[in-house]
Every structure is written in C-alpha cells, then in structure tokens.
C-alpha cells in the first residue's frame, strides 16, 4: 500500500498508530500480532493485529460476543492465546511464573465487576500491590494510596470495606489500585457496565482525566460519549475480528463497514 494517506492506510488492521496531540509519531506500547483464540468451536479472536502507541487512548467497540473483552483480557494474559504474539513496551508477554507477574504489574486492569479485595479496607486494597510487588514501605505506600484516593475522590472512605461503598466509588478505588502500581498501560474491561446510570459519569470523569494526562489506555466500553471525548482511535470488533479502525469522528460520522453502520444504527437511533 502506498503511504499517501497515513492513518487510513491500515484502517482494517490497526497497525498504524494515531499521531500524538502535537502530530508527532508515537512509539508502540502494546503490539498485538496475529492473535488467535478459540472457545471450543467458537473462534473468538481471529488473527487480530493491533498496535497501540504510547499515550494513545484506544476504545474498543462492538456487539457483545465480538471478542473485545477477550482481547482486553488477553493483553495481560488472564486469557491465554493459541497463536500470535502480544508484547508490551517491547517485551513479549511471558507464558507463566514470576516474569508474567512482573509484566502484569506494569499493566493496570479495571474490571467490569470491580473485584476489590473484599476482606481488605480501601486503603489496603490500594497499598497491597505497591508493598508486595514494588517492595515499598508501608508508610510510603499508604501516603501514595491516600493521594490516589484523593485524586479519584474517595479519600473519605479509605478505612471502609469495599461492600460499604457504592459501585461508582468501588470502581474509582479499582482505578486507584491499578494506578498505584505505576502502570505503563491501563486496560478497562467494560468499567461502567455494572454501574447504576447515575454513577457512570463519576467513573468516566476519572478516565477522561487519565487520558488527558497521557496514560496509554485500552478501553472496552459501550460508552459512546467517552469514545468521542477521549479516544484517539476507535477499534470496532465483530465476530472475533477487527472490522474497522478509525478516529472517533470518522467512525461515528462516516463508518466504512456495513457491520459498523448496523451497530451504530442500533445504538444511536434512540
């Protein structure tokens, strides 16, 4: 392909990274190449190629069952892959053991169901990783935790247990827990899907703030507003394939593929 129209050249493979905000080129942070995975007979990930640049915010959209969550979970190997490679900041994802744990420490993950450690207080949730993995002192981790909790707006709850917090608060704590590890990239697996509608925005606000600060983010979501506001690129997946990769503006105003038009037609009409 001629490089006449960069950014459009690889619309369907996602191998071209969006330029950064000053128009400069980005170094690749997450490189996914030729990844395949089956669940039984179902081919959930079909030859996925995607490169996410440093500081880039990529929103993955698609109908349920399209493989977007599986892709997100494969990036820190909560799901194994059958073929292909995933590398983070130039390092290939290790198979097992300590090396994998170390790499995971650099990859923040926010789950749909929050998954805060139920038997630990909010502060303990945020300090566990820094103390056990980053080998910080208790005092240092605690100071950092309080600052992070302040930043996500739940500092008043630091000594409570997760079950005592609302869903929105729990999810913001989960974001703080990931941030405490100083991650190179953050993965969000439908972070607002389990929330009551009035709590969605408080979580999205935190995520938009992160995006503005230049965090590399891969966000699986159904929040089109977030995609428009914060995404550098939208990746549209259907039936285990990356169907379309575009800027949010291109994607929402002029989707190229029939699947994307159909999808947007269903969610944007009302």
């Amino acid at each position: 392909m001629d490089d006449v129209n960069p950014g459009q050249a690889d619309r369907t493979t996602g191998e071209t990274v969006a330029p950064d905000r000053t128009g400069g080129a980005r170094e690749p942070m997450v490189v996914i190449e030729g990844v395949n995975k089956h669940f039984g007979d179902l081919h959930v990930l079909q030859d996925i190629n995607l490169t996410v640049g440093k500081g880039e915010v990529v929103v993955v959209l698609g109908p349920s069952g399209s493989g977007k969550s599986t892709l997100c979970r494969a990036i820190n190997r909560l799901e194994t892959i059958e073929s292909g490679t995933i590398s983070i900041d130039g390092k290939a994802l290790p198979e097992e053991g300590k090396a994998l744990a170390q790499l995971r420490a650099d990859v923040g993950m926010v789950f749909q169901s929050f998954n805060l450690f139920s038997h630990k207080t909010i502060r303990e949730n945020v300090t566990l990783g820094p103390i056990k993995v980053r080998k910080k002192s208790k005092a240092e981790a605690s100071t950092q935790a309080d600052a992070l909790l302040e930043r996500v707006g739940v500092s008043a709850q630091a000594d409570k247990y997760p079950a005592q917090l609302s869903g929105g608060q729990q999810q913001r704590v989960a974001i703080a827990r990931s941030l405490a590890m100083g991650p190179k990239v953050m993965l969000f697996d439908e972070p607002t899907s389990a929330l009551d509608p009035e709590m969605v925005n408080e979580v999205l606000d935190v995520m938009v703030g992160l995006a503005k600060e230049g965090m590399t983010m891969i966000v699986v979501t159904h929040e089109m507003g977030f995609a428009r506001k914060a995404a550098d690129r939208v990746v549209f997946m259907a039936d285990g394939q990356v169907v379309e990769v575009a800027t949010p503006e291109e994607f929402f105003t002029a989707p190229k593929s029939a699947r994307a038009k159909d999808f947007l037609g269903k969610i944007l009409t009302h």
């Binding site: 170390q102 993950m109 998954n115 993995v133």
Partner: peptide, 14 residues
Amino acid sequence: PLGQAEAARSIGLT
C-alpha cells in the same frame, strides 16, 4: 469469586 484471583494476578502478585 474468580474475580478476586484475577484482580490479584492483575496487580502482579505471584
């Protein structure tokens, strides 16, 4: 719940 183990692994615990 399985999510507890996943969250533990995702912050880099062995």
